[in-house]
Simulated scan of single mutants.
Amino acid sequence: MPSAAARVVLVTGVSRFLGARVANTLQADPGIERVIGVDTVPPTAPLGRTEFVRVDIRTPSIAKVISSAEVDTVVHLNLVTSQTTSRSKAKELNVIGTMQLLAACQRSADMRKLVVRSSAAVYGSSPMDPAVFTERDEPVEPPTSGYAKDAVEVEGYVRGLQRRRSDLTVSVLRFANFLGPGVDSPLTRYLRMPVVPTVLGFDPRLQFVHEDDGIEVLRRMTVEEHPGTFNVAGDGVLLLSQALRRAGRTFVPVPAPSFSMMGEAGRRFAGLSGFSPELLRWLTYGRVIDNARLVNELSWRPKYGSEAAFADFVSSSDLGRGVPLELFDRLTSVLGRKLD
């Protein structure tokens, strides 16, 4: 549904991959007069005509930026989903930052639209889950920790803003796990481990969204009118075992309690900071979301299904074809001794 073009768009988290790509995409739209990118650290990627402002959205300073620039559209992408920072700091950025940002949006007379990046992790992962989650479904076991719980809280604060500012167009996007050539995430680091652990007795169904499709959804939500909550994922699913075989990865099933031990290997070899509870549950039970509402609303379907998104990630990465047998034997023997 087309709308009057956004004049001044503010993008949070612009120093990260997703924020930078969204800002670069929006600045190419001739109907957008200004794109302002905010983050706590300067971006490393070129932002073109996007104006970078170094500001912490956890502080009242974000309100001054929104007010002085007469921002009418906010694209909130600052959800921290990785363990690259302490859990307390990540929660502050996710929850306290969102609260400050929404308060600034509420007070601004110029504001007319809010687009929020959320996560399909709000549905949790449980052995009692439905085969497919729609936007109307509630989690069987709500997330109790990590960024998944933060995302639930963020959505709650967004609903509060909608009650107070019913004139705003608000779009909440529950993304499946991003994949693509430019994505660096706990998932991609997991896939790059020299020996990839899986949870013994489980082969979860997984779903992905290609980075290009995710950017296109965010662009459309920004320049068009699509209020509501939408699942965002490529069509189809992959079993974890299928994905690892297609990537040529060496993997070993281990009991769930031993997963953290393999996470220690990930610290050294793949840049992981351990396995978060959300990732462990997802790699145990999986999760599948229905994207029909998004497809119907946009009259558009993601270019990449889950299989194609995974294939593009594999073809553009340096995953290789497994590990030397000697290293595999050494890692699994160490794991075996720890389990005795």
Rank of each mutant, 00 (worst) to 15 (best):
R34N: 08
R34H: 14
V35W: 08
I36S: 00
V38I: 11
V38N: 02
D39M: 10
T40R: 15
T40M: 13
V41F: 10
V41H: 09
V41G: 04
P42K: 09
P43V: 02
P43Q: 08
P43N: 09
T44S: 14
T44Y: 05
A45R: 11
L47K: 03
L47F: 07
G48I: 12
G48H: 04
R49C: 03
E51L: 13
F52Y: 14
R54D: 12
T59A: 10
P60M: 02
S61A: 15
S61D: 15
I66E: 04
S68C: 00
A69M: 11
E70M: 08
D72W: 01
T73C: 08
N78R: 02
V80C: 04
V80L: 05
T81Q: 06
T81W: 03
T81C: 06
S82Q: 08
S82K: 02
Q83G: 13
T84K: 13
T85M: 15
T85W: 12
S86Q: 05
S86A: 09
V95Y: 05
I96G: 00
I96C: 00
G97V: 00
T98Q: 07
A103Q: 15
A104N: 11
C105K: 06
R107W: 12
S108K: 09
A109N: 13
D110A: 15
R112S: 14
K113S: 12
K113C: 04
L114Y: 10
L114R: 10
V115A: 06
V115I: 15
V115Y: 06
R117A: 15
S118C: 04
A120D: 13
A121T: 11
V122R: 01
S125E: 12
S126A: 08
P127M: 07
P127D: 06
P127R: 06
M128Y: 14
D129F: 06
A131H: 12
V132A: 09
F133G: 04
T134E: 07
R136T: 08
R136Q: 15
D137F: 03
D137Y: 04
E138W: 13
V140A: 02
E141P: 01
E141K: 07
E141Q: 11
E141F: 04
P142N: 02
P142F: 01
P142C: 01
P142Q: 02
P143N: 05
A148V: 00
A151D: 00
V152S: 02
E153S: 08
E155V: 12
G156C: 04
Y157S: 10
V158D: 02
G160E: 10
L161S: 08
R163Q: 13
S166P: 11
D167P: 10
D167I: 14
D167L: 07
D167A: 10
D167Q: 11
L168A: 09
T169P: 00
T169D: 12
V170T: 07
S171G: 11
L173C: 10
A176R: 01
N177G: 01
F178M: 07
L179Q: 00
G180R: 00
